[in-house]
Nucleic acid binder design. Sequence first.
DNA 1: GGCACTCATCGAATTTTTCGATGGCAGGTA
DNA 2: TACCTGCCATCGAAAAATTCGATGAGTGCC
Lengths: 300, 300
Amino acid sequence: MAQPTPDPSSIDFAALNLLRVVHELGSFTAAAEKLNVNQSAVSYTIAKLRACFHDPLFVREGGRQVSTDRCEEILARSLQILGMLDEMLQPDAFDPGSATQNVTIACNYYERVLLIPALVNEIRRAAPGMTVKVINALGDGHLRLLNREADVLIGPFARSESGFHSRRLYAEEYACLMDAAHPLADTALDIEGYLGLNHVLIDYGGGWQSAYLRELEAAGHRIDPVVVAPSPAGLATLIVESDLVATVPRRLGEWNADRLKVADCPFPGRFDVSLVWAAHTNASAMHRWVRELVWRVARR
Amino acid sequence: MAQPTPDPSSIDFAALNLLRVVHELGSFTAAAEKLNVNQSAVSYTIAKLRACFHDPLFVREGGRQVSTDRCEEILARSLQILGMLDEMLQPDAFDPGSATQNVTIACNYYERVLLIPALVNEIRRAAPGMTVKVINALGDGHLRLLNREADVLIGPFARSESGFHSRRLYAEEYACLMDAAHPLADTALDIEGYLGLNHVLIDYGGGWQSAYLRELEAAGHRIDPVVVAPSPAGLATLIVESDLVATVPRRLGEWNADRLKVADCPFPGRFDVSLVWAAHTNASAMHRWVRELVWRVARR
DNA sequence: GGCACTCATCGAATTTTTCGATGGCAGGTA
DNA sequence: TACCTGCCATCGAAAAATTCGATGAGTGCC
């Protein structure tokens, strides 16, 4: 044993526990038995503690190992430390019923309309104490995950760089949304026919380009929109009883399908709607629970 | 590394410190440099912690090691633990001369009269910067210790449940206090004679019953007090030049013995006056100093 | 696509811890 | 007093844990 001070940080919790047991039993030998180790191992550890604390800790007095004042002092703190270790070891339990955390979900219009209502409903039903916050993902939802502004991101975001995990929720494609009385409402649209429509273009800005447009342009075409809107909000009111046609994700169209017709688009621009999360939330019980819920809501 | 849980108690303080450094620097390699060890040693220790806590603790996100929520929790406690290690290494010094703490003593009338004056005197002499507060112990002095309302408790409290320590100060018994001119002042009291006296009964209330009364009633007797008082305060004035007799602890009687006579009581109700303290103050140097002082004052 | 950097992992070297055995010391007993 | 017994310190050997140096895989940045 290095004499002066053999690096106190090499003391482990087992040593503190050993101190406790020796104190309790007043005997190295008895402590060794209780801890299922050799007596000399106890001597060894006590010797190390003695060197670290520069104190005999226990002295023999009338057949018993009696603790010194310094030992009592060290022991008192050791007990606290052992208690904290126990707390630290408590697995990350999550009980929805009693949870009061907040969940922040980043997404865009599409998901806010189609998924969020049912999701919020489910969360509040299972975890009445929790709060839900929805923020716009825009184009940089991944950044919001990294900055811990959001717990999960839902949207058409392909699995991206490392540091993230993702789960594909379902496949989606674009379709054409028009008034049920539109002249072409009952015919299958060919490319010519589609390009010649009076288009409503949803341009979210921020450089985001919808998948059907990428497909269309990749094929060497372009469309000249009659109306450009920054989001699909109010789209139905715009289209109904008009000759306008919007190209939107099919499920979003069907959600409006009361008096509107949803028709196949020659440029379906298929994409996946995914659930994305930052690696640092991957193991968290609460996050796992939320992700499972998102999955279930999205699948029905 | 044993997969499931490689004995958490083998975690040492160095490992917690390593966790801290990795968190601070966001890099295993940098932490290794700072700690003057090989990078693989850092990986090894982190791997062990990961296994112990069943959590990745750090995940790579955009070129940086980012901590998980669980890691933050563990880290918070680790910092406390490391702080406590420092305290343990730094012996708990208490210098009465420069101390400015407060000592709160819980006790009742008896001790306030017989012990507190000398004790306060001693404390103030040795530790002029300290303050002393005396509070009533009533019947629940132990609670005051647990609630940290008092540092020590002095009184006829037998050693009680775990969580407390106690030290017997001295034995005490009850005796009869009467005017020096009382007819029976110079005769030894037998049971008949005692029971027939004009008693002053001290009834502290709260269900507390003096030991001599328990003894007397256990023997099948009872007394009919002429006067009942809630505390021995002013008792001397009451008794002097009257035919009243009070049964009080002997030392309390002798403290009044100027013009009063203290006579043996046939029901002495012996008890111990003890010093009691909570386990959480057992190791504190300041508390040890106070307790030693109480012991010395009580013994003289 | 190449380069630089980071962490995981492997075998070997090193250090720490444990074991089993022995010796000294103190207390209790004949 | 002398012996006996139980307890802890210590020693060399064995086992286990940790560290090292090297290598490989994955990622970010040019």
